[in-house]
């Protein structure tokens, strides 16, 4: 066994044991699962093509109205209200409305 110089250095034996166990635990590594897949180039995430041709790209009839003007009356009301919180006295259901911005 190698001489361990300081207590902060991990011994080669400890490292080998950890890496050996890790190798066993990770048997059948993720790489193998990809063997039957082929890489498809040019596939972008939805909406992430260079132009992001979204709704309403061409005419007013299909354009989504941008609610900027009255958006300020909204408060977070997604799943955060369903998220448990042991430290919050009110939970997330009682969120203060924020001030309406002058446009």
């Amino acid at each position: 066994m190698s001489k361990i110089s300081t207590s902060t250095t991990l011994s080669a034996t400890a490292l080998a044991l950890a890496l050996g166990t890790a190798l066993t635990l990770s048997a059948g590594m993720a790489v193998a699962q990809d063997a039957d897949k082929e890489k498809c180039y040019g596939v972008a995430l939805k909406g992430k093509n260079d132009c992001a041709a979204g709704p309403g790209t061409t005419c007013a009839g299909t354009a989504k109205v941008d609610h900027q003007g009255n958006a300020w009356k909204y408060v977070p009301k997604g799943s955060c209200e369903k998220t448990a919180s042991s430290t919050s006295p009110t939970g997330f259901g009682q969120l203060a409305a924020f001030k309406e911005k002058k446009s």
Binding site: H67, Q68, A71, Y74, P76, G78, S79
Partner: peptide
Amino acid sequence: ELVGDEFFRAMAG
């Protein structure tokens, strides 16, 4: 999803 569509879009805007 955490804040809802309206809030997110206002914030993102």
